[in-house]
Simulated scan of single mutants.
Amino acid sequence: MPTGVHIREPREQLFDAAERVLLRDGPNALTSRAVTAEAGVAKGVLHRHFADFDAFLADLVLDRIARIDGQSAALRRSAGTGTVADNLTRALMDLFGPVAVAIVSLVIFRDELRARLRQARPTGVPLMTEAAAMIASYLAAERDLGRIPADADVDTLAPTLIGAAHLLYADRAAPTPETTTVRKVVTTVIPAAP
């Protein structure tokens, strides 16, 4: 690899490369060498921007968690429009894209990564905890609008829905669940969802 070549947005380039390796080869194959080779950069580039590989992985996960904020805002804006079941089905299908499922596997697979993430996110499984908060916020908005029962326990329904949906997507080798399958989970967990 040539030295002295300026790399635009090295963090994003490395994050994107890590995602490609993770999607193609799984968490076992994710090494600093695999990431830098995939990114087409010298290994030193990663270590110039991150203290070590687990710091890189923690930043990757935190960056991907930050993307949930945009999804959360869009889901909250959908409250009162369409149907609750359709809004939740779309949100879950967007949430559990291949990258998110692979990142959850990565977090579960690497003890040191989980330990580092606990410093920034002390409770729950990173990504899933934020996803549950996103769903709870949306359900609270729909409850306020009278579209789900006033006594709906959104703080219990949200993680239940996230857990049930995650089981549909957890097998990376299986085909992506059909919309009707995800919608069935939504209407089973939240039976009053129109």
Rank of each mutant, 00 (worst) to 15 (best):
E19T: 14
R121H: 03
D59L: 11
P98A: 15
E142D: 06
L30Y: 01
A192E: 15
A58R: 08
E112T: 10
T180A: 15
D25A: 05
R64D: 11
F53L: 00
F50Q: 07
T123W: 13
R90G: 14
G40A: 04
A58P: 04
P126Q: 03
R24D: 11
F109D: 12
L23N: 09
D94S: 14
P2M: 14
I7F: 10
A73I: 13
V101C: 06
F56L: 07
R48K: 15
P98W: 09
V186I: 01
V45I: 10
A55V: 01
T187N: 08
R64A: 05
L30S: 05
L60A: 02
T160E: 11
A29R: 03
N28Q: 15
V101D: 03
A170T: 09
R147G: 07
L30E: 00
D69F: 08
D153Q: 08
A115L: 13
R8Y: 14
T83A: 04
A39E: 07
L75K: 08
A102N: 06
L167P: 08
G124F: 03
D171E: 03
A17Y: 05
V99K: 06
I7R: 01
I68W: 09
A140V: 12
G70E: 06
D111T: 13
V104G: 02
R77C: 07
A164R: 04
V154E: 03
D94Y: 12
L145H: 07
A170C: 14
P27V: 12
P194L: 10
R11E: 15
A18I: 02
F109P: 04
D16V: 13
L157I: 11
G70L: 06
A37C: 10
A115T: 14
P98G: 10
T81I: 10
T156L: 15
M1Y: 11
D69S: 07
D69A: 12
I7C: 06
T179P: 11
A74W: 05
A37M: 12
V84Y: 07
P149T: 02
A18C: 00
A174H: 09
L92E: 05
R77A: 12
A51F: 13
V186N: 00
A79N: 03
A34Q: 02
P194K: 11
P191M: 07
G70Y: 01
F109I: 03
Q71T: 12
L95A: 15
F56C: 01
L157E: 00
V101E: 02
P126S: 09
D59R: 14
S78C: 10
A100L: 15
E12I: 12
T36Q: 03
A136N: 04
T31G: 02
V189N: 06
H166Y: 15
F50I: 04
M134A: 02
V182T: 04
E9K: 14
N28I: 12
A74I: 06
I103R: 13
T181C: 11
M128Y: 05
S137D: 15
T36L: 04
P10Y: 02
E112Q: 11
